[in-house]
Every structure is written in C-alpha cells, then in structure tokens.
C-alpha cells in the first residue's frame, strides 16, 4: 500500500480546476444557474396569475425541481471524460509513468472538477441570493444557504458516479452514453418506477420500505433534504405523513449523500488500481 501524497492530488486538482476556469466552463454554468434561478424566483408563480418574488420557501421548492434536473446532468457531463478522455487521447500512459499513484490521479481529478462545480454553484446561486437578500430574513437566508449546500453535495454525488463511469467505460462514446443513461435513470425513471410499483401493489407491499428506497437515489435524497427543511413546503407536499421520522433528520440524509459521494469514487479507485 502506497501512502497518499496530497501534493500530487493538489497539482492534478489545480490543473483540472484552472482548465475549467480558463475555458469559461465555470462562468457558463454559473450564468445558467443565475438566469434559471432568477426566472423561477420571479415567474415561478405565473401559473397562479402572479409574478414577482413570493416566499423563500416556495422559491426554494421551485429551485429544487430545477436543480434536480440540471445539476446531475452538468455533473455527469463534467466528469464522464475524466479518465477515459485521458486514456483515449493517449495522455494517461504518460501521467502514469510519473511519481503519482492511480488513486492520487483519480482523487486529484475529482477534487478539481468538484471544485469547479462547487464554484459555479456558489457563484450562480449566490448571485441570486444576493439579489434576493433585501427580501430575506436571517431564517430564510439560512434555508437558502442550506439549499445551496445540498445542491453542491448533489453535484458531488453525480460527479462521483461520472468519474466511476469514466473508469469503467472502454471509450468516450460509451462513457457519454452511460452518463446520459445514468441521468435518465436517476432523474426521470427511478421515481416513476417506485410510484408504479407502489400503485401496482396497491401499497400492500413495500409501503414501509418505500421511503427508504428513495435513499437509493441521490436526487431523491436531495429533494427530501430540502423539502423537509421547509415547513411551508412540507405541508404543501403532504409528505410529513408518509415519511418516517428517522429519515427526516438532515444529518442522516447528509450521511446518505456523503455515502453517495464516497461510494462510487471508492469503486472507481478500486477498479482503476485493479
């Protein structure tokens, strides 16, 4: 077992991060977040015949729906190339003859990309937070910060999955296919399957484990994490009744999210080291 040299991780991470700054990836994603969030904040209630900022809880609930679609997609696109891209271009062999271990290389790639993603998220949603701040009290700001923090964790989880796919995939084309497939599965299909199963069994089976199945999807963990921190939304969704108390604890949910970050990355390292 070789020791980990954090300096080597830092060097790779620094390159990945600055690459994303320089090619304006970070800027582009931040602008997308800002624009979408502002549109949602001001026109989110247009269907109810009103425009303009309403309450932070309703805004966050709308943003949660946006983020669930957007962030996993962005994270998967950001990460799918990490290892397979170097391999396909031919630069991986050169990197691996240097005094860096495979573990350090993956961790460095991950850290750099995660940094870029976090930076975009903070800049994009932070800008909206600043714009909205005159209308927010301390409690609302706290909720908004919680939303941003969990959005970052959601990105980290899908980035971790993306890096894992990048290690397993034979080429970039397959890696991108796997990434898109992963997005479809977790963001579009997973909830439908759960709901379908629940309806088919008329709730006779699995009613008790249903909430726990949500933990098998980082996007759902993110949803639950945010929805449960908002009293107004909680009653709006009517979820309080079906959800076990143990799972409404933010620490538990945060722990599950952490597992979704560490798990795929650990598998990626294991596979890459073979």
């Amino acid at each position: 077992m070789l020791s980990i040299d954090f300096r080597q991780i830092g060097i790779v991470a620094g390159k990945e991060f600055w690459d994303r700054i320089r090619n304006r990836w970070v800027l582009a994603v931040a602008v997308v977040f800002t624009v979408f969030a502002l549109v949602i904040a001001y026109f989110g209630a247009a269907q109810q015949g009103a425009v303009g900022f309403r309450s932070i809880d309703v805004t966050i609930a709308s943003l949660v729906s946006l983020v669930i679609y957007l962030i996993p997609l962005i994270a998967l696109i950001l990460g799918f190339d990490a290892i397979v891209g170097e391999r396909e271009r031919g630069s991986l062999d050169l990197l691996l003859t240097l005094p860096i271990t495979r573990k350090e290389l993956i961790l460095g790639k991950y850290a750099g990309l995660a940094g870029a993603l976090a930076f975009s998220t903070i800049a994009g949603f932070g800008a909206v937070g600043l714009i909205l701040s005159p209308q927010l009290n301390l409690n609302a700001l706290f909720h908004y910060a919680g939303f941003m923090g969990s959005a970052i964790l959601l990105g980290f989880a899908f980035l971790s999955i993306a890096v894992m796919l990048s290690v397993f995939a034979a080429d970039r084309t397959r890696a991108s296919g796997l990434a898109i497939g992963t997005w479809f599965f977790f963001v579009l299909v997973f909830d439908l399957l759960l709901l379908g199963a629940l309806v088919v069994t008329a709730g006779d089976y699995g009613g008790a484990i249903f909430p726990y199945l949500l933990l098998a999807n980082p996007a759902d963990v993110f949803r639950v994490l945010n929805v449960f921190s908002l009293d107004e939304v909680r009653t709006l969704y009517g979820l309080a009744t079906v959800f076990p108390e143990a799972l409404s604890n933010p620490a538990t949910l945060g722990g599950v999210m952490l597992a979704w970050i560490v798990g795929p990355l650990a598998v990626a390292i294991w596979r890459f080291e073979r």
Binding site: D19, R22, N23, R89, G90, S91, D93, L94, T97
Partner: peptide, 12 residues
C-alpha cells in the same frame, strides 16, 4: 523520463 509514441499533451 518517458516519451510515448505520438506523444499527446494538453492542447489548452
């Protein structure tokens, strides 16, 4: 030191 065949470096 290693120089791979058709060395690929970082374009950017």
């Amino acid at each position: 030191g290693y120089l791979p065949e058709n060395v690929v470096l970082y374009d950017n």
